[in-house]
Write a protein that binds this DNA or RNA. Structure first.
Lengths: 200, 200
DNA sequence: TATAAAAAATACCGAGTAGTATGTTTTTGT
DNA sequence: ACAAAAACATACTACTCGGTATTTTTTATA
């Protein structure tokens, strides 16, 4: 195999394993050694490809977490059709798509936010970027819904977007504490009420 | 001073300092030594009063975090008057009461939930108890509002309670990422829309 | 095939970790 | 006043941490 290809392969392998361990056990309690043991490599390989732990933390946020949000919560918003309907199905489908593993460990982004969102500015900025992208996509859809006379023009698009994101992230954390989906069903009912109320 | 009084004083001093450090730096990255340095005592004193780190973690949840939620989010719900109004003012007042410090570090409970809510069952149970108490108090108020013909009887009290809590905890995390209150204002607008919609 | 560069492994450092064992000091009941 | 117990301090163990220095192995190229 070509050298640069192998290098890229190793780097992305490390990112994958790091993401998994950060998700399952948290950022701070995941050591470089654990990541490299999962990658079946040694610490020397890690420090050949990455500068330090902060760099891999940022990479995981910028690559894995951002991608996850984009693919599951932003891209589906670009569908044609009723804006309110798209809004609801995107959130509902996402919540329904979660595996046991996902439910148990919560939202990778929200875990990062609450564990290290106030730790160092670099993480703060990286996480804020993801949130802002998500928020902007929601605002665009809501604005579109207003233009098409589907959503009440009086409500603030930014406020609705913020409320939708905060409740979604909140419930992803709360679900960790339970061993059943009752709380998710309650959330979905609450969400449905909220969205219906935005109808023009 | 009497021995048992001094013992209680020391124990609660340790709880106070532990809570502060868990809140500011997280549970996992706060060591016993750091807690005891903040308490101006030594590790020997800690292990005389507490069994291990898990015990102090649980104590902090059961005493400090539960108390915080009760005093600021549950007790205010017992006021006389319009249920919807009480609901809104409780959430609004709480959010408005936060200091810079509180905004920067988010919600102590939510931090715990997202950092160690999936770590060990004991923490899961302790945190769930706090959430359940809060949820129950909200459900009682909403049910009262229904009886008094102030809140729509059709909506599920449990769903509304869950949605309110999840959005509040969500926004407490998100606020960490910003250096201004715009996101909190957006949240409050979103909350207001939501609560108004429950009117009978 | 020789050589340089990249990839990865090994060995190590100083600092920090939870927890223990064993001291010393202070308070208590008699 | 004295012995027991409680409160706290000191010193330590065995281990993990992030990061560095150095060496070995693999690969690309001339």
């Amino acid at each position: 195999m070509q050298q640069d290809q192998k290098s890229e392969l190793t780097k992305s392998l490390i990112i994958e394993e790091a993401f998994k361990l950060f998700y399952e056990n948290g950022f701070r309690s995941t050591s470089i050694e654990k990541i490299m043991k999962a990658s079946k490599l040694t610490k020397g390989a890690f420090y050949h490809h990455y500068k330090n732990k902060q760099e891999i933390g940022l990479k995981v946020i910028e690559v894995k977490i951002q991608k996850r949000v984009e693919e599951t919560m932003i891209t589906p918003l670009s569908c044609d059709g009723n804006a309110l309907h798209i809004l609801e199905t995107t959130f509902v489908n996402r919540l329904r798509s979660f595996s046991m593993y996902d439910k148990q460990h919560g939202c990778p982004m929200n875990n990062f936010i609450n564990e290290i969102g106030d730790y160092e500015t670099v993480y703060q900025v990286a996480l804020r970027n993801v949130i802002e992208k998500w928020k902007l996509a929601l605002i665009n859809l809501i604005d579109k819904g207003k233009k098409e006379n589907i959503i009440l023009p009086a409500v603030s698009s930014s406020a609705v977007a913020t409320y939708l994101i905060s409740s979604f992230e909140g419930i992803r954390g709360m679900r960790k504490l339970y061993n059943n989906d009752k709380i998710l069903d309650d959330y979905l009912s609450g969400l449905s009420i909220y969205i219906q109320q935005l109808k023009a």
